[in-house]
Design a protein around this nucleic acid. Sequence first.
DNA 1: CTGTTAGCGCCTTCAT
DNA 2: ATGAAGGCGCTAACAG
Lengths: 333, 333
Amino acid sequence: MPTIYEVAERAGVSLSTVSRVLNGKSSVNKALKERVDQAVKELNYRPNSVARSLANSRTDSVGVLVPELNAPFFGDLMQAVESTLRAQDKHVIITVGRNCLETEKDAVDFLISRNCDALIMHAEALSDDYLLDLNQNKLPIALVNRKVEGLPNACITLDNEKGGYLATRHLLELGHKNIAYISGPAYKADACLRLKGHERALIEAGLSVNPQLIFNGNYSEEDGKIGLLELMARDLPFSALVCANDWMASGAISCARDLGMSLPQDLSIVGFDDVVFAHHVFPRLTTVSNPVADMAEMSAKYILNKVYGQDHNVQHCFEPSLVVRESTINFES
Amino acid sequence: MPTIYEVAERAGVSLSTVSRVLNGKSSVNKALKERVDQAVKELNYRPNSVARSLANSRTDSVGVLVPELNAPFFGDLMQAVESTLRAQDKHVIITVGRNCLETEKDAVDFLISRNCDALIMHAEALSDDYLLDLNQNKLPIALVNRKVEGLPNACITLDNEKGGYLATRHLLELGHKNIAYISGPAYKADACLRLKGHERALIEAGLSVNPQLIFNGNYSEEDGKIGLLELMARDLPFSALVCANDWMASGAISCARDLGMSLPQDLSIVGFDDVVFAHHVFPRLTTVSNPVADMAEMSAKYILNKVYGQDHNVQHCFEPSLVVRESTINFES
DNA sequence: CTGTTAGCGCCTTCAT
DNA sequence: ATGAAGGCGCTAACAG
């Protein structure tokens, strides 16, 4: 690998001149610039990014933290972040948090030790205080899908309440009156908001909220199944079910089928997130779209602004929308 | 951020002593070591990985190239690579190739410019020659799911031929005699091998290979649908269908359903890869498992051996196995 | 076993 | 506009 010094020698200039033409910051005599360009080409010179980082204490890398690598939702997130950043010659260092406090902390430490210029996180277990600390530690961060008081700019969120509302209102419009709900874990803000939206729709329609029709799951496919069984065991009739994410909806669907129910006639089901497999389940899942990719792209743009002096418009709150497929149907009394 | 120099000063030793205790390579007087450890703790010192990289020309990072980030198959791959590597304090820089030659080359250039110590790739479009060059360029590489002559060690592959064989033999054992096949693109080695396995099973059973029962798809869901329609239009009866991956199987399944067929009674379908959504499709998909995660982990171990002086056993060829679910059934004449 | 001294490749004042 | 020189934080000979 040739160094900047060899380029300088070949071009017959000093290495600072080479540095200048490379970075294009300061102006250089045209003739010299051409000689340098020529030398760069002849030597097939590539600047050493490590040396550059050491000299200007920027690595052009941003750390990314996601709970898992092999889930469609986070796949979309990473895809959007990676392509947005790489288009600006920045790169991503991806780490996994596994929904576990220790692992998430480790991952962040790791990213910091790697001198990332900024962090983009979908943090599940890290506390608000921890995140505030991180940020005050002068490390720019962006938080996807999470709202932290005190970090209004860093947060890129979805209007989860509205999403829950849309799901339930759709069922109400189809004539359903008894609507069960399988929620995400109560300690997650998005889960609470989705549930709140569900309740608002109910109340708005003049119906009451019956806790017996609500089951608290943990967003896993398994809990969709468990939830449905539990709800049915409570012996209150319901003709429709909202699940707080598509995984649980999928679990509920296969469970229903195992019980011999025919869908959607016997039970209308709505999911949440519109992950890619939502149209693989049968019947194809009616769900609430979650524009993760857009949010992720926005988080990357926010970082580009904040750290690399770019100037993108950034939107902090995104709107979900209903995606009607075949898992919901009019209520027939 | 404190530097190694400040640690040395506080501990009252030279900075090389600090470096020694940090790296644990060479032995250090116990008392001094303790003073250093103490100073490190008090200052909350964290070595600067960039400076370290510059000094020893190793970044402890390995570049990863995958076609997409938001696909279950590659999600599994990345997950395995990331966790294996990070357990050894190496990190991954992930790039996307989009099945496109230019993009893949860009990605590799990018990774090289980042001074990755090695590359782990699932390359689709890069030619064998290109990969050979890369390797001769003294950059260690590992190739997942690809066989390149001249790079026997770098390749971690699946016995695709056997996989194709298993799929078809399963159907034969169920009594099917007319078995259609939707293949992957002919320019992909894995697609050819899977098809070859299918043909071997047929021949072994005393049946002939009818090209009219073979359709060449491109591994996309859409092509599963197109393939099925095309095969049916050819007007040769078949009671079973093998698809060279799960995406196409999924496309074929929903197409069949749209045509009013009932599955698996009217048509038995086998997929390939056993990606996570295979059990979301209905009927749950019988398929051939592809141990990507194992292969990916192995590729990481190979790199660990090759670049970081570790000593793992590495296995270069993996075996697929049949996963029987509900999309296949006995042939009833 | 410990400290001194050069670099690693680049950027950036500082003079010129 | 250009060149010289110092430094980013660390590792690795080399002496002692």
